[in-house]
Simulated assay, not measured.
Amino acid sequence: MNLRYGMNPHQRPATATPVDPTRRPFRLLHGDPSYINILDAAAAWQLVREAANALGRPVAASFKHVSPAGAAAAGPIDAVMARTYGLEPTTIGALTSAYVRTRDADPKSSYGDFVAVSETVDAELADLLRRVVSDGIVAPGYEPGVVSVLSAKKGGRFLVVEADPDFQPPLTETRDVYGLRLTQPRDDVPLTREMLSDPQLPASAVDDLLLGLIVVRYTQSNSVAYLRDGMTLGIGAGQQSRVDCTQLAGAKVDTWWLRRHPSIQALDVDANTKIQDHVNEQIRRTAVEGEPLDSADRTRWLRRLDQVAFVSDGALPFADNVEQAKRHGVRYIAEPGDSIRSADVLAECQRQGITLVRTGVRLFRH
């Protein structure tokens, strides 16, 4: 497959070639992809397929620059999501709910995203995608008429990719870097609920932690994820310092929760306002001290957030990650363990009333 260009427009020509010419993981239905589009489609599809199989529900992901901005399983949408995206909570379909919950986690980062969903795209989801800014989608199939609706986006430049749900990648991965060829086994260690067995974990927390493990598996390291009710609230990716990653993702959690403050929701919105402009105004208001929220209002509201799960792709090296996570309503943590200060991390979790699960599995991605 000829690509529009490589990672940057000056890197031409660029191509994508199947390792096995007799079996392709994707079929391009519309558009002219770039190198990064292919990377996003490949990682995003693997995430939603793995998560849907693990959770038994439709899953969506929103990818930007080879990391998810959000991911979620199908579930209820709250009043904020319904109002923001112009949807009826009682009639919304499962697949559309999964994407709304995905995009609402970090809608600023999801602007211009590559979408992945685990199920066949229906007309309802296509209508929503028609109204938001995104660059492409990968899915296992499309209902009749949906491809033509999506193909009209972006002046006909929207990418529509069909994944082969039965495709299994090779057992080894190879990458050429600066004259060196690196080869390793594909990271296919199973991520299951059994890894998270702890009598103190409610079933909902187990599912949140399991989704979080799958999310960080496909996120550029260092990575962490905050989750609640089957959806990410904040994802931190690619930071050299894990506590910086924890803080950045925590700031996204705060923004998500502050958008639900009654004073933010009471702001007048013109019926003709575009979805992204509405979201941007919500986010701007959450960051402004004073009207509509003063410092005391913000603090009181943020303290109400609870039952949040937190997942780290690598061992927490210091207890400061636990301290930061607790500020964002975290009650449950999953991490590999086996750092030289793992005892300190456990002690801090016990002090903060957080249930800690050690998976023994590191999930770095570079």
Score class of each variant (00 low, 15 high):
351 R>S: 09
324 Q>P: 00
105 A>R: 12
123 A>M: 08
338 D>P: 02
60 A>I: 10
54 A>T: 02
141 G>K: 03
328 H>D: 03
307 Q>R: 12
11 Q>W: 08
241 S>K: 05
330 V>Y: 13
225 A>N: 04
305 L>M: 11
342 S>K: 04
133 V>T: 15
47 L>T: 05
131 R>I: 14
297 D>V: 00
76 P>E: 12
133 V>H: 14
9 P>E: 01
149 V>H: 14
196 L>Q: 05
25 P>M: 15
357 V>C: 07
151 S>G: 12
275 I>N: 05
324 Q>M: 05
336 P>H: 04
330 V>S: 12
235 I>S: 02
245 C>R: 02
345 V>K: 12
162 E>L: 04
147 V>G: 03
192 T>W: 06
311 V>P: 03
288 V>K: 12
359 T>E: 11
24 R>W: 14
294 D>G: 02
246 T>V: 09
151 S>H: 09
53 N>R: 15
280 N>V: 00
79 A>F: 07
69 A>Q: 13
200 Q>R: 15
329 G>Q: 09
38 I>Q: 06
252 K>G: 10
251 A>T: 00
276 Q>M: 10
72 A>P: 09
86 G>E: 07
224 V>Q: 04
102 T>N: 06
174 T>L: 06
130 R>E: 15
1 M>H: 11
290 G>S: 02
304 R>C: 00
295 S>Y: 05
365 R>E: 15
325 A>I: 09
295 S>N: 07
283 I>A: 04
106 D>C: 14
17 T>G: 03
106 D>F: 14
280 N>P: 01
19 V>S: 15
59 V>E: 12
269 V>F: 14
88 E>T: 01
79 A>Q: 14
324 Q>G: 00
82 A>S: 12
54 A>G: 03
143 E>Q: 12
190 P>H: 06
139 A>M: 09
228 R>K: 15
163 A>M: 07
253 V>M: 12
157 R>M: 07
278 H>C: 10
76 P>F: 00
173 E>A: 01
19 V>C: 15
180 L>K: 07
106 D>L: 15
118 S>N: 00
240 Q>K: 12
140 P>I: 06
335 E>Q: 15
291 E>L: 04
264 I>V: 07
195 M>K: 01
54 A>W: 03
362 R>L: 10
62 S>N: 00
66 V>G: 00
83 R>M: 14
303 R>W: 07
140 P>C: 02
249 A>L: 13
248 L>Y: 05
81 M>P: 01
127 D>T: 10
310 F>P: 00
21 P>L: 13
258 L>I: 11
123 A>H: 10
203 A>M: 05
320 D>Q: 01
258 L>N: 04
116 A>S: 10
108 K>F: 06
79 A>S: 13
134 S>A: 10
207 D>M: 02
309 A>R: 05
349 C>G: 03
12 R>K: 13
145 G>F: 03
282 Q>S: 01
312 S>I: 03
84 T>Q: 11
313 D>E: 08
174 T>S: 12
55 L>M: 06
332 Y>H: 10
40 D>G: 10
167 F>L: 11
345 V>Y: 11
13 P>H: 02
79 A>N: 08
353 G>F: 06
303 R>Y: 02
293 L>P: 07
192 T>C: 02
355 T>M: 13
58 P>D: 14
6 G>K: 01
362 R>H: 09
12 R>G: 06
